[in-house]
């Protein structure tokens, strides 16, 4: 690998549920809490909408990390979507392990609408973690020589 990690700028997609994490990100903004610009946020109604295929698609398209932000247990606007996402993430992480991808490239965090500071610290620490992990092996995949 010729790229050093210092020059490496992680690309991260964050799926944020509209009622908690997206609002938490709004609060971080209103409070002017700064964090790295590596994360492109995407709003979904519920973390329950985030399915495995979307997370894998992000990895396929070159995401070095995928963050999912949902409501704390018991706080889901849609009652229980976050529990389903949690279970999916548990299995997905195991699947990633099986295929030799560091499962930390997918991360689920509960961030409420009032946790602007937690949003900031999560974005900061996750960007740093991904910086340490380095570029995703998926992006560096070489196509087999054929044709």
């Amino acid at each position: 690998m010729d790229k050093t990690n210092a020059a490496f700028e992680p690309r991260i997609v964050a799926f944020l549920c509209r009622w908690c994490s997206y609002a938490g990100a709004d609060l971080a903004g209103v409070s002017r809490l700064t964090y790295p610009a590596n994360i492109v946020p995407m709003r979904v109604n519920c973390s329950g909408r985030v399915d495995t295929e979307m997370v894998l698609t992000a990895l396929e398209k070159g995401a070095d990390g995928v963050l999912i932000g949902g409501c704390h247990p018991g706080d889901c606007h849609y009652v229980s979507g976050n529990y389903k996402t949690r279970r999916r993430v548990v299995l997905l992480k195991q699947a990633l392990s099986e295929v030799g991808i560091d499962p930390r490239r997918v991360h689920l965090e509960w961030i409420s609408a009032s946790e602007g500071i937690k949003f900031q610290s999560t974005m900061t620490s996750y960007t740093e973690l991904i910086r340490e992990l380095g570029p995703t092996p998926v992006r560096q995949r070489k196509e087999p020589v054929h044709g």
């Binding site: 995407m42 979904v44 109604n45 909408r49 295929e53 698609t57 606007h77 849609y78 979507g81």
Partner: peptide, 27 residues
């Protein structure tokens, strides 16, 4: 909320104006 969309194993369930197709393009 779209929880059913994620759980649907066939892709038959889609959220209007936030379909799998749209999400893929956005990603």
């Amino acid at each position: 909320c779209g929880t059913c969309v994620s759980a649907c194993p066939t892709g038959a369930a889609q959220l209007k104006n936030l379909t799998d197709f749209q999400l893929r393009e956005m990603i």
